[in-house]
Amino acid sequence: MLFATKVFSETALALGHDVLGSETHGMSQRGGSVISHLKIGSYESPLVRHATADVVLAFHPHEAYRGLVFLRRGGLCFVSGPDGDSWDRGVKDYMAENAIAAYVYPADDVALEIGSPRSANLALIGYAMSVPEMPFDHDQIRATIERITPSRFRKANLEAFEAGYRRKR
């Protein structure tokens, strides 16, 4: 999760943007859900307010439900979860009303299949990058992953990212 945030913040920095974000430490880390915020551009506060985020990346369907509250009208939500439409009806209506586009992608399974279960987050990021509305492009994100992944995970991370980007199922 922190690594996923780092992929975006390092990309932004490399392209000359300011970044500001927030993360959880201490007691709240022992279990509980961990949320990491990231703002790119000129900001003062590291927290993203409810109803203002452009993108939410959720690495579990439950986290998607919890994270939706941060999305603005027209925002994007990427969820790592099993294929098939399992959204709660009411929540689905809420997303439709507010033009929130939700993409569910089985990142865990895909990562497992290519033999790098630890890189599931990267598969979800890859998938997200295949959507044109996302900030940055494939090459920029790929370059960051190459640069910041420790060498022994590099191959796995890149493979997972590419599999996601190709929307491999």
Partner: peptide
């Protein structure tokens, strides 16, 4: 939304 999500009764993982 908070209402809807609350009603889902997602497991609250306490520390």
């Amino acid at each position: 939304l908070s209402q809807l999500v609350g009603d889902l009764g997602l497991p609250v993982r306490r520390p």
